[in-house]
């Protein structure tokens, strides 16, 4: 029982270790991270609009999303995607400044753009 589990898990490890290395998978992984943080920012924006979260938390989390996305962007080699992520960064900065200035109405526009970018990212990942 023990040895069976041991060998199978070891085998699994070796198999997956080989699989992880491919650059395509790496790209997908990075895109997932970016998408995850962009989606976080979107959810923060929505929740803030509905008055469901404190201002400070919203700003901190947006700043964190921007930082994480900026870090992940360095790993992206595809220029088309890189441009898109630059766009994403701008939108996030816009949302953050709207929250800072308490522009309840102004936030709808960048939030809408963010939703679109997120859909595109999602499509890219699922490709």
């Amino acid at each position: 029982m023990k040895s069976w589990l041991f060998t199978s898990s070891l085998l699994l490890l070796v198999l997956t270790a080989c699989r992880q290395a491919s650059p395509h998978d790496q790209q997908i992984k990075t895109l997932k991270t970016i998408h995850s943080w962009a989606a976080t920012a979107e959810m923060v924006g929505e929740a803030w609009t509905n008055g469901q979260i404190p201002n400070q938390y919203a700003q901190q989390t947006l700043a964190k999303s921007q930082a994480e996305i900026a870090q992940a962007r360095n790993e992206i080699t595809d220029t088309a995607i890189s441009v898109q992520i630059q766009q994403l960064d701008k939108v996030l900065a816009q949302i953050n400044s709207d929250i800072q200035q308490q522009h309840q109405s102004a936030i709808a526009e960048p939030l809408h753009q963010l939703t679109q970018i997120n859909q595109q990212l999602d499509a890219l990942i699922k490709q």
Binding site: H35, T40, E42, Q52, I53, P54, K64, N118, D122
Partner: peptide, 25 residues
């Protein structure tokens, strides 16, 4: 469904807002 993977507690903090609003947070 939104594609958020929890890498940080800030992200986990959002899981109850959809159901309970501000009090969920």
């Amino acid at each position: 469904p939104r594609g958020i993977q929890v890498d940080s507690y800030e992200q986990a903090a959002l899981i109850l807002t959809q159901t309970f609003g501000y009090w969920g947070f």
